[in-house]
Design a binder for these strands. Structure first.
Length: 818
RNA sequence: GGGUCCAUAGUCUAGUGGUUAUGACAACGCCCUUACACGGCGUAGGUCCCCGGUUCGAAUCCGGGUGGACCCACCA
């Protein structure tokens, strides 16, 4: 019985992690009648590098919620998972084996990717999830490339095509010329850069000249229209006439468009297919012809005459030189611009007309916003970001990618009539490049061309709730659990992961995918700047774990609030370290005095009722906060109660009763023991989700046996009981603390030891308070070493919180005899 | 250009209509009190960003600034 003097976290933490896993403490029970709390865990991309502290925080932040809900009596469904699908893996394999997709077959390449990711994931799970003490049910593990996930992804495709929400179209598509694949709007990021705006002349068919400004003269061969603002008097006479494209000689009509900015450049704008989004917009509205001049790998094509085969930049240079030589070049000026670029490689995107698969999103905007409002967002304001994105969406979702590694698009095209052939759902998952359709085409042909594109990774990720709770494998379970209770995720992927998941769930089930979405904390460096490898300000979680224990790191995580950024401060870890020590020592103190604790005595002393009242108020507050995902507020309140109310005041108040039972009697001692037991146990439980290892160690050292539980993490969260909140006792206790604190300050200001006894204490206050004070006289005597208390008027020291004044007569400190 | 969030002691931070404005770190003074010196008790430190409004009363609500972070759009 009793705890050792020091807590050895390095020894204890792995021991408990092993205990939890071996005893399946976090196992989901499919047969349980308890209410289910399910989590749509974000599948991390498992890397072999260091662990970013932001990543550790992000995953631990909602892990706390899982632990909390488990203690609240929920049957928690918490699957671990990995994202090993898509470009990151492909890129990793290309680099590791120094191969490219051109040098290998699709099947071989995919095999390499699968093998490599499995290896990395195993290591990652050990040094990340397990090391941080995460409470997943490992039997529920899934990865985004495993057959079941692929089946979900492909089934989604087949169903959406069948119901008309997924279609194939030949349209301008956002294109990465480096990866040679189509991209979705959400995969495009801003790239700020300096370039030159070139002012050039166009000849008019009739003979005059006009001036046009362009940053992309290489698009001259693709020029299909020229526009001026309808109110621009300078150019009224041009409208309806043709201009001649310099160097290329084609005739282009001049029209008006409201969107032209008269102030910019010369006020005359050319539209090329396709230099940017604005070109596409005008091309669509004015039904202009298409002149595609860019190849899939970013070169000028045969439409460009002598410039064919040049890269876009080479073409630009050559065309500018020729414009200069021919006298069409007026001048250039430097300009700052922001262009869209591929989120993976930063290559500026182009717009190329290709045949791609799209999922309808534009026509469901209103419905999606409606769905978003049915979900509880934590914090609420992030819903706005979702709504803004949805409102401003300009494209349907392009889901096809011209890559190797990824979920194959399950479709074939009839060689004869071109009709799309889909597989039967029960045959999924499949790779159309290795199997043929089981039926002939409607036209009778049995020859097919397989689709060899793969899905955008979000095609699978957007089905994560369905994959997590086994939509196709366990339809009964799915019915019971959908929508999932919680989606935790970061704010930067609201427009992708959250958006697509809500879209999919709407298209398939006309339902919301989850009841709650919690936006994780974003970690900043101590100066409040984002952590970036290139700036060298990244803090690595694995390095912190060498210096501090897991519980210390988690304690810091516990201070975070969902949706709010958090600056990393190492001193916060020191605070966590101290908290653990304090918790350990206070628990040690408790156990020292609880060896002979049996049960609740018939009558409780006033200060014991006081601490119980404070404790229940803390329980109520912490519970309310955690129920609304405010972990930081809950933790702060519990710590405040523990450190200041319980340790600094209550433990000091009851020492005399505990150590000297003869003085105030066995009943008084038993009463203190009861309140001590309850308050320490409550603190341990309320802190257990945050610091699971040390609380387990303490719990197992004493409370587990009393409560008959295998682990604190499946014990019951302390229950708030308003009958335990005795307002009268609470007030009396507060007065006692106020008086004791005033006496401490009195001694402290005189630079005296707190051990100096007070021989006589006179108290002056309203008669109404006197009865209350009589209740706590013995406690004041115990805690502040007061020999005699009486009511009187010879006073000069006011208390700080209550209208009470004190008269203090000090005695002499008794020297200890050695 | 549009939007969201934020602004409180040297630093970080709590606090959504009435508190003597919370706590932590740092500073200073005292105290080795039998759980803990990784501790305890105190002290000092604030125009709650600025201006206006609502209100009996504003750090808190509203409007307008200023500064910062992020999201979206975007100039041919």
């Amino acid at each position: 019985m009793g705890l050792p003097n020091k807590y050895d976290a390095k020894e204890a933490e792995p021991r408990w992690q092993k205990f939890w896993e071996e005893n399946k403490i976090f196992k989901f029970d499919p047969d349980s009648k308890k209410q289910i709390y399910s989590i749509d865990t974000p599948p991390p991309y498992a890397s072999s590098g260091h662990l970013h502290v932001g990543h550790a925080l992000h995953y631990t932040q909602f892990e706390l919620i899982a632990r909390y809900k488990r203690m609240r009596g929920f049957n928690v469904y918490f699957p671990p998972c990995f994202d090993n699908n898509g470009l990151p893996t492909e890129k990793y394999v290309e680099e590791k084996f120094k191969i490219s997709k051109a040098q290998t077959t699709r099947a071989e390449f995919r095999k390499l990717c699968t093998e490599e990711s499995a290896k990395i994931e195993q290591a990652y799970a050990d040094r990340f999830f397990r090391a941080l003490g995460h409470s997943y049910d490992w039997d529920l593990l899934y990865t985004t490339i495993n057959p079941e996930a692929q089946k979900v992804s492909q089934t989604s495709f087949v169903e959406l095509v069948q119901q008309g929400d997924c279609y194939q179209a030949e349209e301008p598509t956002i294109w990465c010329t480096k990866h040679q694949t189509a991209l979705a709007q959400a995969e495009v990021e801003d790239l700020k850069r300096s370039t030159k705006i070139n002012h050039i002349y166009f000849d008019m068919e009739e003979g005059s000249k006009i001036e046009i400004a362009t940053t992309r003269p290489e698009f001259l061969p693709a020029c299909v229209g020229i526009f001026v603002h309808p109110a621009d008097n300078r150019y009224k006479n041009l409208v309806g006439k043709n201009a001649i494209v310099p160097l290329f000689g084609s005739k282009v009509p001049i029209s008006t468009d409201e969107s032209v900015d008269m102030e910019f450049g010369s006020g005359i704008l050319m539209v090329c297919t396709f230099g940017d989004n604005a070109d596409i917009d005008k091309w669509k509205r004015h039904k202009l012809p298409v002149k595609m001049i860019v190849t899939n790998n970013g070169k000028l094509n045969e439409q460009c005459g002598k410039y064919a085969g040049m890269s876009l930049l080479e073409g630009r240079k050559a065309i500018i030189e020729d414009l200069k030589r021919e006298g069409y070049f007026l001048r250039d000026e430097p300009i700052e611009q922001t262009v869209g670029s591929c989120w993976r490689c930063n290559t500026p995107v182009e717009f190329i007309v290709t045949k791609q698969w799209f999922i309808k999103a534009l026509e469901y905007k209103d419905a999606l916003i409606e769905q978003g409002r049915k979900i509880k967002w934590h914090p609420e304001f992030y819903r706005k970001r979702f709504e803004d994105w949805t409102t401003n969406l300009a494209w349907d979702w392009c889901i096809s990618r011209q890559r190797f590694y990824g979920v194959p698009i399950p479709a074939w095209y009839c060689k004869k009539c071109g009709e799309v052939m889909l597989p039967e759902k029960e045959d999924l998952p499949l790779d159309p490049t290795t199997v043929n359709p089981k039926k002939n085409c409607k036209c009778g042909s049995s020859e097919f061309i397989p689709e060899d594109d793969v899905f955008d990774t979000w095609m699978t990720s957007s089905m994560s709730p369905e994959i997590a709770i086994r939509w196709l494998e366990k339809p009964e379970q799915f019915k019971k659990m959908f929508p999932v209770t919680l989606r935790p995720q970061s704010h930067d992927i609201i427009r992708t992961w959250a958006f697509y998941t809500i879209l999919k769930s709407y298209l398939h089930f006309k339902a919301i995918p989850w009841e709650n979405i919690a936006i994780g904390t974003f970690v900043l460096d101590p100066k409040g700047k984002g952590m970036h490898k290139s700036e060298g300000n990244v803090v690595w979680a694995d390095e912190l774990l060498e210096k501090y224990s897991v519980d210390v790191l988690r304690s810091w995580v516990g201070t975070a609030t969902f949706g709010e950024d958090l600056g990393f401060q190492e001193k916060e870890l020191v605070a966590g370290q101290r908290f653990l020590t304090k918790l350990w020592n206070a628990s040690r103190f408790g156990m020292m005095h609880l060896e002979d604790y049996s049960e609740k005595p018939k009558k409780l002393q006033i200060m014991d009722k006081w601490i119980l009242a404070k404790m229940h108020k803390t329980i109520k507050y912490a519970t309310t906060m955690l129920d609304s995902y405010k972990t930081g507020s809950a933790k702060r309140e519990v710590e405040q109660f523990f450190w200041h109310t319980l340790c600094d005041n209550y433990l000091e108040l009851i020492k005399d009763r505990l150590y000297n039972p003869d003085k105030r009697g066995k009943e008084a001692r038993a009463s203190a023991q009861y309140a001590l037991y309850q308050s320490i146990l409550s603190v341990l439980k309320m802190m257990a989700p945050v610091v699971p290892h040390i609380t387990e160690e303490i719990y197992q050292g004493y409370f587990a046996e009393k409560e008959g539980k295998k682990s604190i993490h499946i014990s019951y969260w302390p229950a708030y009981d308003e009958n335990e909140v005795d307002e009268e006792a609470e007030k009396a206790g507060d007065i006692a603390v106020d008086i004791i604190s005033t006496l401490r300050r009195y001694k402290s200001e005189k630079n005296l030891s707190l051990k100096i006894p007070i021989t006589k204490l006179e108290i002056h206050c309203e008669t109404a308070l006197q009865d209350t004070i009589k209740l706590i006289m013995d406690d004041i005597k115990d805690a502040a070493i007061v020999e005699d208390i009486q009511f009187g008027t010879n006073v000069d020291t006011p208390c700080s919180k209550f209208p009470i004044e004190l008269g203090i007569t000090l005695g002499e400190i008794k020297k200890k005899e050695n």
